[in-house]
C-alpha cells in the first residue's frame, strides 16, 4: 500500500515520553500509523506498550510529546490533550483492555447499547421523548439494536444477547469487548492483547475478525504477544524495548532484525509491567 503524498498519517506519535516518578516507561517514542492498516506494537514484557496505549486513549497525560490523529476529512485531534470522553466521541478512537473491562452486571446487548449512548441520548431528549415514545427515539433505538445485533451475529453471540456479560466464557467476553468498541463507530481501534488467553481456534477467528474490521475501513493498532497472529495480519510492526523503539517496518523486515531477536531472547523483565499496573490502579 502506498500513501498519497498529500494524505497525512492517521496517527502520528512524536517524541512521546511517559515518566512515573523516576521510571521512564516510554522514552522519546515516535511512530506513525497508516490509515486502513493494522499496525502492531510488540515487545517484551515491560517494554511500555500498554503505557503507549494509555497515552493514546487518554488514560495517562504524557509527560511530553504529541499524539496527533488526522481524520480523512482533515480534522486534527491532539489525543494527548483531549478530554477522556472526547477521545472516543470526537476523535473516534476506541480501545479494549488486556484484562477485559466489560460492564459485567449488564446484559450483552446493553453493553453494546451503552457504546451507542450519544446517538441514543440525543434522540431521547433526556428521556422525555423516550417517555412519550416519540417516533424519532424509537427509530434511533431500533437502529442501535440493529447495529448491536449485527455485531453479535458476527461474533456468534446473538443467542446470548440477554445474558449478563459477566456470565460469558472468557473468549466470548474478549470478542464482545471488540464488538462494543466497534459500536462506537471508531476510525481507530486499539486492541491490547486481544488474543491473550484464547485457544488456537479462537485466535484464528479473532484474526479473521480483525481483518474484516480493517477491510471495512477501520484502522487498527494492536498490542499482541501471539507472534503467529501478529505476523499474519499486521501491515506494519513497531518493536519496543525498555520504552524505546528498536525496530519499525513491515513484518518480514522486523522478523529479520537482529535487534529484535536479541531483545526477545535477552532476559525479560516483569518488574516494569507490574509497576505500570500498580500505577494504573492508583490513578
Amino acid at each position: 500500500m502506498t500513501k498519497p503524498a498529500a494524505m497525512p498519517w492517521l496517527l502520528c506519535v512524536e517524541n512521546l515520553m511517559m515518566r512515573f516518578g523516576g521510571l521512564t516507561a516510554v522514552d522519546h517514542l515516535s511512530f506513525n500509523a497508516e490509515r486502513g492498516q493494522i499496525t502492531a506494537i510488540i515487545g517484551p514484557n515491560g517494554a511500555g506498550k500498554t503505557t503507549v496505549f494509555n497515552c493514546i486513549t487518554g488514560f495517562y497525560r504524557p509527560t511530553s510529546g504529541t499524539i496527533l490523529l488526522t481524520h480523512p476529512n482533515g480534522a486534527e485531534y491532539r489525543l494527548d490533550q483531549l478530554r477522556g470522553d472526547h477521545i472516543n466521541r470526537r476523535a473516534g478512537v476506541a480501545r479494549t483492555f488486556q484484562n477485559v473491562r466489560l460492564f459485567a452486571g449488564m446484559t450483552v446487548l446493553e453493553n453494546l447499547l451503552v457504546a451507542q449512548h450519544n446517538r441514543l441520548m440525543a434522540a431521547s431528549g433526556f428521556g422525555i421523548r423516550a417517555l412519550f415514545g416519540s417516533g424519532r427515539y424509537r427509530r434511533a433505538e431500533q437502529e442501535a439494536i440493529d447495529r448491536a445485533k449485527f455485531w453479535l451475529d458476527r461474533i456468534g453471540l446473538l443467542a446470548r444477547a440477554d445474558d449478563p456479560a459477566g456470565a460469558l466464557p472468557y473468549g466470548a467476553q474478549r470478542q464482545l469487548e471488540i464488538a462494543r468498541a466497534m459500536c462506537t463507530e471508531p476510525i481507530l481501534l486499539c486492541l491490547d492483547e486481544p488474543a491473550a488467553g484464547l485457544n488456537p481456534r479462537e485466535t484464528e477467528d479473532l484474526g479473521a475478525l480483525l481483518l474484516q474490521i480493517r477491510a471495512e475501513g477501520c484502522s487498527l493498532l494492536l498490542i499482541e504477544h501471539d507472534m503467529k497472529m501478529v505476523m499474519q495480519i499486521s501491515d506494519h510492526i513497531i518493536v519496543l524495548d525498555h520504552g524505546r523503539k528498536i525496530s519499525d517496518g513491515p513484518p518480514a523486515m522486523v522478523r529479520a532484525d537482529p535487534k529484535v531477536i536479541s531483545a526477545y531472547l535477552g532476559e525479560g523483565e516483569d518488574s516494569e509491567e507490574q509497576t505500570e499496573l500498580s500505577l494504573e490502579q492508583k490513578a
Partner: peptide, 28 residues
C-alpha cells in the same frame, strides 16, 4: 428510567466502571 433509557444505561455503566464509560464516549 434506570432500566430502559440511554441515560439509565449510562448511569449503570458509570456505576461499574467510570473510566471505561468515558472511553466509550460518554460524558461521565
Amino acid at each position: 428510567l434506570v432500566t430502559r433509557t440511554p441515560l439509565g444505561r449510562a448511569m449503570r455503566a458509570c456505576e461499574q466502571d467510570l473510566k471505561m464509560t468515558a472511553l466509550l464516549g460518554i460524558d461521565v
